[in-house]
């Protein structure tokens, strides 16, 4: 599903935050990527989501070798991957109500007809009920907002889900609820998962295998 080979990437020329890293996620597989903070695993997640152009290395996503990133990547390829980031506050457009937040990818890809059905279905799946969908991002808690961000990542039915420290700021119960929602989606769609995090116990419990950052090229 995803093959990252010899990736070197960074934000400043000559100062890569990660060097020569390889990682593969098979179809339907859940891989945990474990590493300390600041080691570059989030950058690797952004490369895998086609959001950051690596300085070197190849990315093969769903059998297609990736040449372009961000807006230049073909839309169909981009939407193959769903992403959830660490901070829900930072990853939600502050002007949108939760319903619009979840529906945004459907609008962006011209699939407005599906909005009503998909949004309600996903809101139920991630446990957002009542009037929460009509509220703005600043009117809900971090946990509720992260549920909406997960729903947004799932709304286009991605075949690969990347969760970058998705639960690092959440309490135990919300963590368990979000992981359960991800797993329910994966059971239904056989989607792959790359879960990036620093909690070994969590990743071991969640994923089929866990790769440690110290030896990621061994994967």
């Amino acid at each position: 599903m995803l093959e990252l080979s010899n990736i070197t990437a960074g934000y400043e020329r000559g100062k890569p935050v990660l060097r020569d890293v390889s990682l593969a996620v098979a179809r339907g597989e859940a891989v945990g990527l474990l590493g300390p903070s600041g080691c570059g695993k989030s950058t690797l997640a952004r490369v895998a989501a086609l959001l950051h152009r690596p300085d070197a290395g190849t990315v093969v996503l769903d059998g297609t070798t990736v040449h372009d990133y961000r807006h230049r990547a073909p839309r169909a390829l981009r939407t193959t991957v769903g992403v959830v980031f660490q901070s829900p506050r930072q990853s939600a457009d502050p002007r949108l109500r939760l319903r619009d937040l979840i529906a945004e990818p459907l609008k962006a890809t011209g699939r407005r007809i599906e909005i009503r059905e998909r949004v309600d279905e996903l809101a139920h799946a991630v446990g957002l009920g009542g009037d929460l969908l009509t509220r703005g991002a600043h009117e809900v808690s971090d946990g509720q907002l992260q549920r909406a961000c997960l729903a947004r990542a799932l709304v286009l039915r991605p075949r690969l889900l990347i969760c970058d420290e998705m639960t690092a700021m959440l309490d135990a119960s919300t963590t368990a609820a979000l992981v359960a929602a991800v797993e329910a989606y994966r059971r239904e769609t056989k989607a792959s998962l790359l879960a990036v995090g620093h909690d070994q116990v969590l990743l071991d419990r969640w994923c089929d295998r866990t790769v440690s950052w110290a030896a990621p090229s061994a994967a």
Partner: peptide
């Protein structure tokens, strides 16, 4: 540089 722009791009939004 906010993650929500990343999320929008990943959700298929055009430039």
């Amino acid at each position: 540089s906010r993650p929500y722009i990343d999320a929008a791009i990943s959700g298929g939004a055009s430039r």
